[in-house]
Design a protein around this nucleic acid. Structure first.
Lengths: 125, 125
DNA sequence: CAGAATCCGAAAGGATACTG
DNA sequence: CAGTATCCTTTCGGATTCTG
């Protein structure tokens, strides 16, 4: 997943950014954290379809990438809070536009394989 | 990779969009196609680090998703051109913002694991 | 030129069970 | 509550060879 540093050829900047939010969940996690600091369990409730293992893994990855700050409270029962870092906050417009695009277009993507790919049936049997 | 249709819970729109540009290359391909229709070989030259197998696969995926239109010319030697569909064009602002973000932040990501994760050496030995 | 086919190792992602 | 630890399957992605 980590790729090396592609100096600064254009298009690679796209890759740089995509790297941080790829996979199935990272973008969604970032989105939910935009609502503010959240505990692990809260995030789980907001994302019912992610397994707890994956949520943990992705959160750690985001932490490694410096997008999210993980704060552990030495309490019983345990409490762990996740917050967007400054860098993570800076992704807000990116996430927002992804969300806006998704909302605007997901109906078109429902099942249809793509209009121009649909074989026209050769006028019935 | 295809997930089903998550009605319209927020955050899932993020996933919808991310789905289309995830993986290592799709975003970059889309970016390069923004410069206009390109032949397979042109794309390869613009993306020297992608193998031809992956380029083919990702282009097919993009075609399936309706973002790219593939046009084959019945010629010898063969010619195949790839163009952004209308839907693909509609992603332009998304790609642009990814690129802009990447450009603005990739220096900070060079090698550093994330500022707040760096263990401060306990004042020298 | 633009691929298809095959093979392979590495990650991603999921299910389930267990724990401090 | 917030994870680990295993196990497992699927997908990603690269290398190489072959072809119309």
């Amino acid at each position: 997943m980590k790729r090396q540093n592609f100096s600064r050829r254009p298009g690679c900047a796209v890759e740089t950014a995509l790297d941080l939010i790829d996979g199935k969940w990272k973008g969604v996690i970032l989105y939910h954290l935009q609502a503010g600091t959240q505990r692990f369990g809260e995030l789980r409730r907001r994302m019912p379809s992610v397994t707890q293992r994956m949520l943990t893994k992705q959160l750690r990855a985001l932490e490694q990438d410096g997008l999210v700050i993980r704060k552990v409270y030495a309490e019983v029962p345990p409490r762990v809070e996740y917050t967007l870092s400054e860098l993570g906050e800076s992704l807000r417009p990116v996430i927002d536009i992804l969300k806006a695009w998704g909302e605007g277009h997901q109906e078109r993507l429902s099942g249809a394989p793509a209009p121009h790919l649909v074989k026209k049936p050769k006028r019935a049997a």
